[in-house]
Amino acid sequence: MARTGVKRSNWIGRVLLVDLLAGLRLTLGYMVSKTVTHHYPDYEKWVPYQRHRGHHFIKTNDEGEVNCVACELCSQICPCDCITVIPFENEKGDRRPKVFDINLARCLYCGLCEDACPADAIKLGQEYEVATHHRGTLVVHLEDLVKAPGKAGNGGVVRPAKLDRNSGLRSVTQTGPKDAGLDWWSRIRRER
């Protein structure tokens, strides 16, 4: 109603409180309509779009080795100096990172490391729950980065999830019958 222009009632309407009743009808409609809130972190979790820049991850090749060649381009381009790479030479004679630390507390998730990487190794994934009680745990190491979840395949949906109270209070999406996830935008009530 508000968008289509306000209709003022005549004096009969005002005496019979038509405007007030219209308002009451609107709020009653909302009262019985479905809620649009995500039930996060208890039952639902938003899976971000593929373009989302979250917690980093490092890709591995078919043999399980990290793609990273420890060229340090990412740590050079990083505007907040949060990536530490120390290279070493492995048994096969390849240049690989010995240390690959990212300080998530300093990172601004700009994605420049992803752009700079020549070896298709470092990426920014879908994980966005990085809250913690200790600053030290925000420095993630190579093994964490390899294990971190990748980019969301079919993102932009709400998935059933469960709060995991054991390992650091994360909401974990459940794979189940509703695997495709729910299009959250369909919950929004629009006026024609």
Partner: peptide, 10 residues
């Protein structure tokens, strides 16, 4: 909460 389309205390 329900008028504002949210579930309120849960």
């Amino acid at each position: 909460a329900h008028i504002q389309q949210r579930p309120g205390p849960m």
